[in-house]
Design a protein around this nucleic acid. Structure first.
Lengths: 126, 126
DNA sequence: CATAGTGTATATATACTATATATACACTAT
DNA sequence: ATAGTGTATATATAGTATATATACACTATG
């Protein structure tokens, strides 16, 4: 597992780590049950604090990508798709909220939004 | 022009002011060229700093709702209201599109989105 | 010009959030 | 016991958002 962090990046370290591990997991390079580098090991390798690697791993766990056991280590989770789905739901909801805020400020009705949504969704099969 | 601010709102004061004035303009209660309450007057009335009313007015000007002339005052912009609404519609549509893209990648149905939308819209009237 | 209205610029205070940390603690396997 | 593992607490630092006071500049009108 090859993680690279960059100081010149505008993204925080914990996010850089999490993003790279996410990609590795999604690409299938690693399998469910596989051990990840320990927080301590990764921290030492990257010369950062354990707490920062923990932050990355915690986020990954929250999003269902890995599982962590105190005293044992962190492991690639069973690709429990419903967890990942939940994350996508949250993301979608964020966008919807912004659309709603915009709409309310301009007397755009809920129905108008729903109609637009239907058109956008039905549009092209991606 | 009746502006109300609430300390218990989670929105900042300048945003509360801007939002209310936007609504008044969009609703047609005032016409292009009409004078808005002066920053100073409004500040005194609401017992807040001129700088806060200025912040609200600056935002409104940036978004094309009003025009401000130093030494004279602030006025409802000579604008095509339907154009502004169109702008807002397009903005909302952008957000919806992102929500749709996210959804489609995770088998989130159109109905799920619409249900979420309804909840978010009906939710809090800030 | 004097004046009283208007908006503007500068510098500042305060609170909140995000990021990252050190250190001490607790769990697990051998 | 020991050497791994993850965790909790308290803290430091930087950045951003919000709101302000005060002094300045523009505009109309006597």
């Amino acid at each position: 597992m090859n993680i690279i962090i960059s100081n010149s990046s505008d993204k925080p370290i914990y996010e850089q780590i999490a993003t790279q591990i996410k990609k590795i997991i999604i690409s299938g390079e690693v399998s469910p049950g596989d051990a990840l580098p320990s927080m301590r090991f990764l921290a030492k390798e990257l010369r950062i604090s354990v707490i920062t690697t923990k932050r990355a791993y915690s986020d990954l766990e929250r999003d269902g990508f890995i599982e962590t056991v105190a005293g044992k280590g962190s492991f690639v989770a069973n690709q429990n798709l419903s967890f990942i789905r939940e994350e996508q739901l949250r993301l979608a909801e964020e966008f919807l909220q912004k659309a709603v805020d915009t709409a309310k400020n301009s007397d755009i009705t809920c129905k108008e939004l729903k109609d637009m949504l239907e058109i956008l969704y039905g549009g092209e099969e991606a």
